[in-house]
Design a protein around this nucleic acid. Structure first.
Lengths: 332, 332
DNA sequence: CATGTTTGCGTAATCGTTTACACAGAGAAT
DNA sequence: ATTCTCTGTGTAAACGATTACGCAAACATG
């Protein structure tokens, strides 16, 4: 039980007014040294904890930010959440997370819920480049919003993401060095900005190579398995397979193995994101390292800036990734 | 931007008092059909959103629960978060998550922050069986708390976890069927209840087999690599290696591969948790499937019950896992 | 000594909701 | 016609913290 102790109780116990007690604890207003320590000690003794709701109501802010992601289960997003959370702890901010399960209306519903002063700002990884647009625009009109990793069309909010062009460039330059002549891309469709960007980047960067017909689905292992099987069914494999992310690559690898094909002997294979998965497959995957910590830091910085000045110029930031080379692309 | 619209504004626009407006929206008190729809429509038109802080202050609750876990980056916990979040959505509850990074004082600090009425209850996966005890006891005295997956010593709070005994039993029974004679356990130390339980379960269930000296560290791939190398260095491998979780198993597998040993040819290998990892290694790992959805559901149910009645008898629940057999234990 | 200035603290208003209480009007019962 | 019960609505008091404003005492300045 421990009857909730209010500020009034602390004030009473310390023999001061509630105003003084508040000031003493805040410590940034004029209070005598003596009363300050007295109040602080009393608060400590009574186990006083400020009531977050009351403070939020009065202050108009609650030191909490929201985050909406397609699915925490995806190792990449799990790591993003981890990084964002770590960064927020530095600033004594809380994190409310909501999983949209990649569904547009669920996403919209969650955003609505977060609106009522529940959070000061929101970081969102939109689930669909078009479909998420409406809800995001509505939200952004009310509270600071930054898009992370992916973005929707028609919303000029702050955005932080990896430089997908550069990432794909790194992959293809590396493959060319390995002597690759023919190549194929297995990625995600244009439903997400990331899918679209990587697709276009691949099309551009692969000029001059023998490019096989690409295959597009979504960022999942299941799809990778399917796509891998489809690729094998075509007959001859290209020299290298570039995948839209690690999950797809893992799926493709599984399909190749099931068909008796070996990597890197029969074809080279690359992923994107450099999640834990890339390290544990056999062979380990060459992948593009997302600068997750930097992404998280920048996203929060953008959010804080936006909170301070709603009319500051929009922040559009692309962070350069790096390539990590592993056995899946070591020349046979 | 879009001047916050208050309930008063809706009331004014609808030409009723603020009390009536509130009742109309709540819909559970006596209001005429006509005013009710009028108010609702007006609220809709003005884009009214109740202010969460004000409501929380008044109601004394905020429909938010907190969750503290050792590390979201761990695929198993990422899935747990996903399941808990999905379950909470059903009940229109929000989820605040905090990552303790496995550090005791960080965990304590986060719990303190959550205390001030910020959440109605908290689900925690304690980072240390002894070290986390104090902070958890303090928290449990103030708000409903349920321990998930792991528990600390000296706190009789509600608890939901997998039946580790049964899980290990399933693994060993299966290995015996495969004709295993000699066996070793590579798991985590007693710092967590899970580590301890699995260790003891193994010791009990392996009776009658040729049990090699076990190796204990923590639940991580890095440790698995290390332990695997140490095992190889001993010279001869046992017929089977039972690991404390998938991460360790993945590490051990890597170490075996580096040493030129093959699974299941040279030894059988098992994991625990059945995360995505178990499916994508080569060979895929036999593992114990955690009933994650059930765990999440039960945890929330316990929390809700506890919220309704602080003095209800303590809930201690063990959910039975299942075994999923994959190639890592298919008899050579 | 008279007049500022600073310091420390208390009173009361405020944030936006919900809801106990009161009250007016409409029927119903006498 | 008088009293009684419902219904629907409004007035005002919470919830707990922060802070503008004001006042008294202490101190400084002329």
């Amino acid at each position: 039980m421990s009857a909730e102790v209010r500020l009034q109780d602390v004030a009473d116990a310390a023999g001061v007014s509630i105003a003084t007690a508040s000031r003493a604890l805040a410590g940034k207003d004029r209070v005598s040294r003596k009363t300050q320590t007295l109040v602080k000690r009393t608060a400590e003794r009574l186990g006083y904890q400020v009531n977050a709701a009351a403070r939020a109501l009065r202050e108009g802010s609650n030191r909490t930010i929201g985050m909406i992601i397609p699915v925490v289960g995806n190792p990449f997003y799990a790591q993003v959440v981890h990084a964002v959370e770590a960064e927020l702890q530095e600033q004594d901010l809380e994190l409310i997370i909501a999983d949209s399960h990649g569904e547009i209306e669920r996403e919209a519903r969650r955003l609505d819920l977060l609106l009522g002063g529940r959070v000061e700002g929101v970081i969102v990884v939109p689930s669909d480049a078009q479909g998420s647009s409406e809800a995001l625009i509505k939200t952004a009109a009310r509270i600071p919003l930054v898009q992370l990793d992916r973005r929707v069309e028609g919303l000029a909010s702050d955005f932080i993401g990896v430089d997908n062009d550069r990432g794909i460039d790194l992959v293809i330059a590396h493959l060319r060095e390995q002597g690759v002549r023919s190549i194929v891309y297995i990625g995600a469709n244009d439903n997400t900005s990331v899918g679209r960007e990587r697709r276009l980047a691949f099309a551009r960067a692969s000029a001059g190579l023998d490019v096989h017909e690409p295959i597009f689905g979504n960022f999942s292992r299941e799809y990778g398995l399917e796509a891998g099987a489809a690729l094998v069914a075509r007959g001859e494999l290209p020299d290298a397979i570039v995948c839209g992310d690690d999950l797809i690559a893992v799926g493709v690898l599984g399909a190749l193995r099931a068909a008796g094909k070996r990597v890197p002997r029969d074809t080279l294979l690359t992923g994107f994101d450099d999640t834990l998965l890339a390290e544990i497959t056999d062979p380990p995957l060459t992948s593009v390292v997302q600068p997750i910590a930097a992404l998280a830091r920048e996203a929060i910085r953008a959010l804080v800036l936006r909170t301070e000045d709603r009319d500051a110029p929009t922040f559009y930031s692309r962070i350069a990734p790096q390539l990590v080379v592993r056995e899946s692309t070591s020349r046979p």
